[in-house]
Computed example of a mutant assay.
Amino acid sequence: MKKGFTTGSCAAAASKAAAIMLLSGKKKTQIEIETPAGIKYSPELEDIQLDSGYASCAVRKQSGDDPDITNGILVYAKVSCIDPKDEEGRVLIDGGKGVGRVTRPGLDQPVGNAAINSVPRQMIEKEVRQVMDLYDYDGSLFIEISVPDGEALAEKTFNPRLGIEGGISIIGTTGIVEPMSTKALLDTILVELRQKRAMGDCCAIVSPGNYGREFMKEKYGYDLDAAVKCSNYIGETIDMAKELGFEKLVLCGHIGKLIKVSGGIMNTHSREADCRMELLAAAAIKCGASTEVLQEILGCVSTEEALDIYFREGIEKECFDYIMEKIAFYLSKRGAGQIQTECIMYSNKEGLLGKTENAEDIFQNKDF
């Protein structure tokens, strides 16, 4: 699959090109940089502007085969001279239009800074300093990174919930966009957890998604939008929470995902494992269901359909007591004695199906 280049690579390339144009007085149409991964990047330059006091240009982001909403956007760099020379920071970097600004602690950049992460900042400074050395320029340069479409795009990202306002982030640790989005998802989960820990949270409320939002509001007065979204990566999320020093974690979610945890499955994506009916049937066996009932459960397409059989047979309480016991066991096993793990499981139709021993206490005491 084809790899792409990050917004950080685009910003660094545009910054280098604008610096060359400013210090040489000549326009360029293409530039080359080396990414932290050691791969060369040679984009064409767009919307070139050269004035006596500044130079600017844009690089169009190419995400390769990765499904990325920033694919095709223009990342701009405007470079201008600063007088007098700033000995402490010869290369000053900030964000302009469409680049978000950090409003909450726990992110890569401190509150108030533009959401241009550390590695992209290092890339920009490295490339621009090489240009300054090439042209024997001993002054300071100010680099403004902007993304004209950034503010609108940011509404489709995690930035608003992370406390990054006004635009997208300039990111990337290798400069390369790898096809598939697993790493990006895990990085986002880590950022959310780190931010909540930095704000003093000792308990992480985690959910695969927003299924059951109304149930959680009505039952526990909790807005599921505030939970860390772990997607299918339940095991990795517990690992991250342990490493960050959380004392407790509560997993809240729909039976369609969480029933898999009762079988020790910590990545709930269907391509990894889909034994929902088998696990529901196993619980029914434990509770004395007949062979005919088991066959009926195994023939179900959805967990909601299987639930109807549980309730029809009157075995729902005994079955979910058993299922929650298994979930508690596997969550605790993953926690490895380093974090208290709890769980609340529900369905769209029936509401609360089961909970571990201390899960409700955490919500009642607002212990998060």
Results as ranks from 00 to 15, higher is better:
N267V: 01
R334F: 06
N210W: 10
I164H: 03
K229C: 04
I309S: 04
T35G: 01
A328G: 15
A13F: 04
F158M: 12
E125R: 09
L45S: 01
Q195N: 09
G264P: 04
E32G: 13
R271A: 03
D133H: 06
E214G: 05
V131L: 03
V191P: 07
K3S: 12
A58G: 08
L258H: 08
A204Y: 01
V79I: 13
L307C: 05
A359G: 09
L251D: 00
P36K: 08
S118Q: 14
G221K: 11
K61V: 04
L280A: 12
S231Q: 09
K229N: 06
N113R: 12
A282L: 12
Y233W: 10
D201N: 12
S118H: 11
T268E: 00
T103G: 01
D138M: 09
K349R: 15
V119Y: 05
V99Q: 00
L249A: 11
R213W: 07
A282M: 13
T341A: 15
Q62F: 14
L22Q: 01
D321Y: 13
F311P: 03
T70L: 10
L224Q: 13
K126G: 01
D108F: 13
E236G: 08
M345F: 09
G200I: 02
A306D: 05
L50V: 08
G163V: 00
D223N: 12
S140D: 08
